Computed example of a mutant assay.
Amino acid sequence: MRVAFVGKGGSGKTTLSALFSRHLARSGAPVLAIDGDINQHLAEALGEEEKSAPPLGERLGEIKDFLRGTNPRITSREAMIKTTPPGRGSRLLRPLGDDELHSRHVGRAGGVPLMVTGEFDESDLGVACYHSKLGAVELYLGHLADGPGEYVVVDMTAGADAFASGLFTRFDLTFLVAEPTRKGVSVYRQYRDQAEQFGIRIAVVGNKVTCEDDLLFLKEQVGDDLLAYLVQSPWVRAAEQGRTEGGLDALDSLEPHNRHALTILREAVDSHPRDWDRLHRHAVEFHLRNARAWADARTGEDLAAQIDPDYVPGGTPLNT
């Protein structure tokens, strides 16, 4: 199952991404965390880094070559864009599978397997868009044949920037983290309106709730979309200041209410069956949008021809 955490900058989405990933890993579930935020802080939020790995953004060309495999519809890495869907001959992956992409790009932080997109650095200023780095994540999710009980948790870029690519359609459930303030729920309204157009499932997770008035405010503003809430956490603050021990067992010291909230989030994810047809339909739609808008002109090819009409989404991993 694929899960995204979005929200206003400073809402705590990276913290929630880390807590949820650790909660899953603590239970023994296979989980992969991915840092897709322009500010790369997920490794720090997960705990002390145990094993780093090259960022996905540094090897995008090689990743394209690997994923396209022997797919005859994709003529070169240059013709493969972030929305290019898989077809017959493409390499489909299992989460944390025994393949060169995972072996090269998966590190560990706080006991959780982690992939990162890479930082937006000085060489990118004025000449690049950060969302180009996210192209590797979009391609990865597009070629992922994950199943029930397998989890990929992505910490997305903050605010409405999450809509700058079709990546927001690649998840089974999106958690929108909202503080109990007007600014905190403003991104929720933006995300809700966009998500409704594409049938994207969202659930609001209140964060930094301090009193009954905070909770009532969230309920008034987001209604039935409010799935759960976390109270202001001394444990999280201590972790952010480096005053807690690392490792998955440390999560046992998290406040009982907040641990229960994480359980509610997992139950919500597990209760949503995978809709392969929706995922593939959105993949094709956004690929055609990109092809018409810029990619056909840039590559000199008709990229609509990359769509394999006989491809069945959710199939068995190939050529790995």
Rank of each mutant, 00 (worst) to 15 (best):
M1L: 09
V3H: 03
F5C: 10
K8I: 02
G9I: 00
G10M: 00
G12C: 10
T15R: 02
L16G: 04
L16H: 13
S17R: 02
L19V: 11
L19C: 06
L19K: 06
F20C: 11
H23V: 15
A25W: 04
A29G: 13
D37C: 14
N39F: 07
Q40Y: 00
A43H: 08
G47Y: 09
E50C: 13
E50I: 13
K51Q: 09
A53G: 06
P54L: 05
E58G: 15
E58Y: 13
G61Q: 07
F66W: 12
R68Y: 12
T70G: 12
T75N: 09
R77T: 10
P85D: 08
G97P: 04
G97Q: 08
E100C: 12
V106S: 11
G107Y: 11
G107N: 00
R108G: 06
L114E: 00
V116I: 13
T117A: 07
G118D: 01
E119S: 11
D121W: 12
L125C: 13
A128L: 07
C129S: 10
S132T: 10
K133I: 00
L134H: 13
L139H: 07
L139A: 08
G142A: 13
L144T: 14
L144P: 01
L144F: 02
G147F: 13
G149H: 01
E150V: 08
Y151P: 04
V153M: 13
V154H: 06
T157I: 11
G166K: 09
T169W: 00
R170E: 08
F175D: 06
A178L: 03
P180Q: 07
T181N: 11
K183R: 14
G184Y: 05
G184L: 00
V185E: 03
V187T: 09
Y191T: 14
F198N: 09
G199E: 00
I200C: 06
I202T: 10
A203T: 05
A203N: 08
A203I: 06
D213A: 13
F217M: 05
L218R: 10
L218I: 03
Q221I: 07
L227G: 02
L227Y: 03
Y229V: 14
V231S: 12
Q232N: 10
Q232P: 02
Q232W: 05
P234L: 03
W235P: 08
T244L: 14
E245F: 14
G246R: 12
G246N: 02
A250T: 04
L254C: 04
N258T: 07
N258W: 02
H260M: 06
A261H: 11
A261N: 13
R266C: 05
A268W: 14
S271M: 02
P273T: 01
P273L: 00
E285T: 09
F286V: 05
A291F: 09
W294C: 14
G300V: 03
G300T: 01
E301G: 01
E301M: 15
Q306K: 06
I307T: 01
P309L: 04
G314T: 11
G314I: 07
T316W: 04
L318N: 15
L318E: 11
